[in-house]
Design a protein around this nucleic acid. Structure first.
Lengths: 265, 265
DNA sequence: AAACTAAGTTTCACTATTTGGAACTTACCT
DNA sequence: AGGTAAGTTCCAAATAGTGAAACTTAGTTT
């Protein structure tokens, strides 16, 4: 027993259901959820009711379908502001983006995945949530590898285990072994490449954003195409990125630890 | 007492705690939460643990502070895509924004508040989450009043009750009575104004986005300043906005109700 | 139109989980 | 050292959650 039981109380179960609804990526009917759920009918039903009542899930009575609720969008706005480095990094991303004119990504680690928290795209205008909030794999993205390379050993080990090592392109690293070797190289080099490992024709350079204590706050990457750049020419941007990264780290640290949190009654 | 107790089970309580953490808008210590919480110490403590374990809240052990977790950002991305009209409306917002060159907002109703789900700003570049995800009051914004005016009577009544009627400017509607009268005018006029009711010098025109069945999907507004426009000149944009709105509604409806949701096993 | 079927909802006895006062453990302040 | 406040754990009592099964509703077949 306890096949994949993750010590989940009622709250955990409810949030699992929330994830399940999210995983579908479209409005779902009760039966769809029931089929892919580990919970019995009545339990699932009541969990859904709770979530709907709380506004985390919306229910379209006419169609009988569940979808994620907009309350999440609101919460996320707060999360983005308080929990991510994005608000702090924003002005630096703007500056970097304008100066180098290529696509810039800001990412953080979340549950063994790369979570993009902000983006600048030179050509295309606003893209909003459709970019920030996206997740990607760690083992075949520049930011992913950069963040992983400087992560605490226990975190690193866990994440290396978690990866799927699906082959996206000819250059994708498809084993823990290959990834570990790559991480060593990245560490000594000081930054990471993505050499068409995720999408053909897409390359990038990425740096980790580190606190003074060496803790990984996030990652910064500049992406381009093989048509416009070689890895070598992208690497010339690294000094510039390094200074951006250190300024973000500095600001993030002073922002995370403001004078006094406590306020008198 | 039981000020805002909503028949909450364990799940509801946990989500209340989540909201509470969100409300602070900064990392908070246990004691801060305890003070503003209706739950006893041990209960609050365990709820927080559940949420942290689930990644909805992050806990900084060094500082002993809780903050919203990045898992929310990921969930919100899904929510934005599946539950909001933003992805559908995007191309039309782009077009409208380019043609009229003023700030455009796309909003939906959430818990008696205006939730902005997308935005176009002619001058300033990308602003990401810092704009989408924001909430505003219904009673003194163009989109808020527009959506409210066409809402089902029970929804409308509830929301009218919920408003704070705080006076932001000389023009703010500060009573249910005044708001009701305004809604009547809006209905017969066919669209809503914000005549410096929220911020001095800021005016806007807003339209509801309605399904064929007359259900409110959201709202669309064009904002400007008194320096650049009068209400009358803004009103000239209404026909253009009307066509945008109807195209969004059309797309949204066909998108919400795709051929068949069910898929064979 | 009646019978059938599938999808969704409610019931209810059972029990596991949650509850919260109080005791305990740190960690900091004097 | 002693004191105080913050955070954590305990445990008996009680609540809230569980899920098989019965029920309702809507849609389909005979």
């Amino acid at each position: 027993m306890t096949e994949r039981v993750n010590e989940a109380g009622t709250v955990g179960k409810a949030l699992n259901v929330l994830d399940q609804v999210a995983a579908f990526g479209r409005p779902v009917r009760f039966a769809d959820l029931l089929e892919s759920s580990e919970y019995p009918k009545a339990t699932l039903y009541r969990l859904l009711q709770s979530l709907v009542q709380q506004g985390m899930i919306s229910y379209d009575a006419e169609r009988g379908v569940y979808a994620l609720g907009v309350r999440l969008v609101r919460l996320a706005h707060q999360a983005w502001q308080t929990a991510s480095i994005a608000p702090v990094a924003r002005p630096y991303l703007d500056a970097l983006s304008i100066e180098i004119g290529e696509t810039v990504h800001l990412a953080q680690l979340d549950h063994g995945q790369v979570l993009y928290v902000d983006k600048r795209n030179a050509a295309v205008p606003v893209e909003m949530y459709s970019q920030a909030g996206k997740v990607g794999p760690v083992y075949c993205t520049g930011v992913g590898k950069a963040m992983l390379a400087w992560s605490r050993i226990d975190v690193q080990t866990r994440i290396i285990e978690q990866q799927s090592y699906h082959r996206f392109t000819a250059n994708t690293l498809t084993s823990r072994r290959a990834l570990r070797a790559e991480l060593d190289i990245i560490c000594s080099r000081g930054f990471a490449y993505d050499n068409e490992e995720h999408e053909p024709g897409i390359i990038c350079v990425a740096l980790p954003i580190l606190t003074q204590g060496g803790h990984v706050l996030g990652g910064l990457s500049v992406t381009s195409t093989t048509a416009r750049h070689s890895l070598e020419s992208l690497a010339q941007l690294v000094p510039h990125m390094k200074s951006t990264v250190s300024r973000i780290a500095e600001d993030a640290e002073s922002w995370r630890f403001p004078e006094q949190i406590k306020q008198p009654a």
